[in-house]
Write a protein that binds this DNA or RNA. Structure first.
Lengths: 252, 252
DNA sequence: CGAGTCTTTGACTTTGGTCAATTTGTGTGG
DNA sequence: CCACACAAATTGACCAAAGTCAAAGACTCG
């Protein structure tokens, strides 16, 4: 750790610390003294233009990131050629834990729009975690939440009906917005239909049709990448795999 | 990777899986002082009859397990009612990390056949990890491998063609057999067709048909739950999403 | 050997993928 | 500010793939 000047570190803390703290510290009730250790790990903010890659497949695991502004997707290109989308990351969510198993990133992370991330040095995070049991616990919890995210993704992919997958996707997006303290009724979709399709294992036309149908059923209102949830309960029911007919019948 | 001196959770898994370990599933190649810590974590072995649950949804996270004999599946029942299969676990593989995010298991683990597991107390594992950087590192690596497993699962589910999913599943199973030092040519499928279907998001009839087709194409030979890989390269190609026609053409 | 489950196979139907054309939206330069 | 060009999204028509229902065959375990 090259002696970074105090001023700069302070700046980092002011600008980034709060967000990072929320993710890593607050839930664990880490006291201010300990928190300083964590703050020191947050290195800097990095700005990325839309389409830029935060890291590439094969890069060694050096940092983990917290999306600060703008959304990201993590992708892994199949031997096939076309890219599989493994996750979307909203502001406030962690990025980069796909490298845990091999010390090297298995995919890459792409900014979906102009974005900024906070960068955390992974090795320093580990040493701090060894010293602070609460941080260790919280780190594992955050990792576990990433695992849960993947499981929700699998849950979506196991839904056989396309519009159920789309509903599950929108529902999940809404839930995450709620947990992050963002707008929950009016959602902005930072990713293209093609990205959604790549995430859900559908053709992009099917995604479009599903959205249209959800709109016809009065469950959401879609205008481009802006989406309003009109009937959260019915959206949740569809996402959960309830009889598709139930919603449709009432809606038409 | 780094082999010497690393506290080898991989070793724990292998030894447990190979039936060579007695009471203690101990990693070799670590100094006696460290070794003692790890010793204490492995509690006992538990035997389970086919169909028994290792833990249930909602159970607090107390242990993680290593399958010792027999295979397991981890399932989460969708609000829907029917159960989603999140993973299969072969002898030697870790079970129970789905609870990291919430301290409670999000699904349950079921023995697919008469089985035994090694039980590790999770809290003790954490304290030991805080004291032993190598163990901490290794623990994270194992968790990361679980994440990679989930990503491979997603990769399968993103394949649109049913027989590609099935091929990817069999290929993955073969790879895992290889890594665990098990038979790679002649695979035993410890799970039912219904389970495979539940894992791949297909109807069980489709799984059956796909297997038949893979057999007709000369890629595998199937007799019930015993399966022989005849053309590993073509299986891998199919799994990777190569033109399905390539294999079929050559095979017929 | 028999009862049960598991698996395969067949016939039919529905869903969603593909190809293609149109409309909407976005950003740029005149 | 408008017009233009390009990309993104929608919509339609058609077809192949997979789901469903149903029945027969194979395997397992008592």
């Amino acid at each position: 750790m090259d002696r970074s000047n105090v001023i700069d570190l302070d700046g980092v803390r002011r600008r980034c610390g709060q967000l990072t703290a929320r993710q890593l510290c607050l839930p664990a009730g880490i006291d201010p003294l300990e928190r300083e250790h964590v703050d020191a790990i947050v290195r800097r903010r990095r700005a990325l233009p839309a389409g830029a890659r935060l890291y590439h497949e094969g890069d060694p695991l050096a940092h983990v990131y917290v999306a600060h502004r703008g959304a990201f997707k993590t992708v892994a290109l199949a031997e096939n050629g076309d890219e599989a989308i493994l996750a979307f990351h909203l502001p406030g969510e962690l990025i980069g834990l796909d490298a845990l198993g091999a010390d090297a990133h298995r995919g890459s992370a792409v900014a979906l729009e102009d974005a900024e991330v906070c960068e955390l040095r992974f090795d320093e995070l580990l040493t701090a975690a060894a010293r602070l049991p609460r941080l260790q616990q919280q780190l594992l919890r955050v990792i576990g939440q990433g695992v849960e995210r993947d499981h929700r993704h699998v849950g979506m992919l196991l839904r056989r009906q396309a519009h159920e997958r789309v509903a599950a996707f929108l529902h999940d997006l809404g839930e995450r917005h709620r947990r992050l303290g963002l707008e929950t009724r009016e959602l902005r979709l930072p990713m293209s239909r093609e990205d959604i399709a790549g995430f859900l294992g559908l053709a992009l036309e099917t995604v479009s049709r599903s959205l249209t149908r959800l709109q016809e059923d009065g469950i959401v209102a879609v205008r481009g990448r802006r989406l309003e949830v009109l009937a959260p309960a019915r959206l949740a029911a569809l996402a959960a795999g309830a009889e598709a007919a139930a919603g449709a019948r009432a809606g038409r």
